[in-house]
């Protein structure tokens, strides 16, 4: 799965944008041909680190939109610092992304 990330710093606050490719199936949708429910398949845990130090921990349910996008801010970051994001879904697939903070 692809994870696209962008991080820019303005003053000492970095803004990080993350876009993941994931179906985020709720388990409530029916397959139109078989009439059976499509099993739930969704990212449920996400963490982000700044130069290896945890800055964000998230838990998600099926209500996060397909191809999840999220944005967060970190104080005390500077250009060149590294942001890494790690995610796992309910079927235990793991996803990783990393980006270097750019000057605004």
């Amino acid at each position: 799965m692809a994870m696209r990330m962008r991080a820019t710093v303005d003053g000492d606050v970095a803004t990080v944008k993350v876009l993941m490719q994931h179906d985020m199936e709720t388990g409530l949708r029916k397959d139109k041909e078989t009439g059976k429910f499509i099993p739930a398949h969704f990212i449920n845990l996400v963490t982000a680190t700044l130069n290896g130090t945890p800055v964000l921990e998230a838990q998600w349910g099926v209500g996060v939109a397909k191809n999840p996008f999220f944005e967060f801010k970190i104080k005390g970051a500077k250009a060149g610092d590294k942001i890494a994001v790690h995610a796992v879904d309910n079927l235990d697939a793991h996803f990783d992304g990393e980006v270097e903070i750019a000057a605004a």
Binding site: T53, A58, A65, F70
Partner: peptide, 17 residues
Amino acid sequence: IAEFNFLNGAEPFISVR
């Protein structure tokens, strides 16, 4: 839908779809 915990300098801010 979601819960976000802020650690070590993360601002209490989140944007998500």
